[in-house]
Design a protein around this nucleic acid. Structure first.
Lengths: 230, 230
DNA sequence: CGAGCGTATGTAGGATCCAATTATCCAGAG
DNA sequence: CTCTGGATAATTGGATCCTACATACGCTCG
């Protein structure tokens, strides 16, 4: 039983409902890879592990279903959502449209501190390029940090996209060797985006980002189409 | 007590969970205007009106919150989401990016029957141009019918956008007089989109749609910015 | 007479319990 | 040996009950 060993890192925050807490816990477990795609999510087990009743778990599962992380079938087990290649492609196509908008709206509202943070993330990725899981995490942080000036709804939707496709990105990143050109291309693209942000050129940032996502999608499709999901 | 008179039209469907049923009922009540923005949604009242316990209602409210139709604050009343003008603008900006993608992906997959349905909707709108509520409904159906060939996730997100901004569109449509040019412009744009779809020109359809949404947004901003929400 | 505070009421959040459905496992037939 | 059938066990869906928080009212004091 793999799930017994699950470390539920998230602690309950003040003024937060149990449902919300459970939601965050399961979400993190899925995104971090602790729960694999297709895996069952028994309500009682989650409830026991987090020491709550099944009620908040049920509400959490509903929430996560609408985020696309969980698949719910009536009277049956909830399962971690499993995206086939066409669904990953679908989400990337949406990202190509929405994230340029996000970065365009965000550009004029980024603070100096946020720009510094972006620069730090950029260099950190390079420093840890040998650790795929860390790169995955930092890459995610870099992109989402770009959108911190964007409106809340847009940020939430984009965040959901990243969460839903995290498994696919992880599977892909495991196929990339450290000495691959891919790292250098990504690094360059990130740098150009950072500079565009710093100079307040929102259109340039949007165009670069769209190209970045489109290129990633193409590589991802090529790499993952031949394989059965790991 | 206005809510006592609510007609919950939706009947329970076979093999559907109560939660899902309640979700549909409340969603319809909000979109149709039965529940006004900012209005309280007491769990017990909904439960009583639908003759269910509060459990399915709670799960429904969580679901609707993630769709953007309901605003939830811990230990307090759920309220129908109330969008200010900047949030409406935000959603329209997202629509300008996503719906062209939706129609582009949909174009090559539309059947003859669906195209006929689009044509019917187009003419029906003209026939009922004096009835704002009907026009609102048919306009919605027309647009969503354009995307029937698009992938499920994208369709759901776009549908959520339409639901969340339904109140704003209703408020706007009440300011448009029947003899306004607006009707004729909309009619022309719809027609051009229909023709592009019929001829399978997805790029053209996307471009037209983007312009249509952008123009609508501009008018909506101009019209609603000066007023307090009706 | 108004503002601040304490109490009371009512609503949401959560736990426990029951019923209905589904998954699992074993036996038996082809 | 495999597949089908049914009985059993486990899990989800829903209802009822209890608790804690928030709001609203009324009272007291300045």
């Amino acid at each position: 039983m793999a799930s017994d060993a699950q470390q539920w890192r998230t602690r309950r925050q003040g003024g937060e409902s149990l449902s919300h807490f459970v939601t965050r816990a399961i979400r993190e477990a899925i995104v971090s890879g602790l729960l694999a795609p297709g895996e069952r999510i028994p309500q009682e087990q989650i409830a026991g592990a987090l020491d709550v009743s099944r009620i908040p778990v049920r509400e959490a599962l509903r929430q996560l279903e609408s985020e696309g992380l969980v698949h719910l079938t009536p009277n049956s087990f909830a399962r971690v959502a499993k995206l086939d290649i066409t669904e990953v492609r679908e989400i990337y196509l949406m990202r190509e449209r929405l994230e340029p908008l996000a970065i365009e709206l965000s550009t004029p509202r980024l603070t100096e501190a946020q720009l510094r943070q972006l620069r730090n993330l950029h260099t950190d990725i390079e420093a840890d390029r040998d650790n795929p899981e860390t790169v995955l995490q930092l890459d995610r942080e870099f992109h989402l940090a770009c959108y911190e000036g964007a409106p809340a709804r847009l940020r939430r939707i984009v965040g959901d996209f990243w969460n839903a496709t995290q498994h696919a990105r992880r599977a892909y990143s495991n196929t990339v060797r450290p000495d691959d050109d891919e790292h250098e291309v990504m690094r360059a693209e990130h740098y150009l985006i950072y500079v565009a942000l710093k100079e307040g050129d929102s259109e340039q940032a949007g165009a670069l980002l769209r190209g970045h996502i489109a290129r990633t999608r193409t590589r991802l499709e090529r790499e993952l189409s031949g394989e059965a999901g790991a």
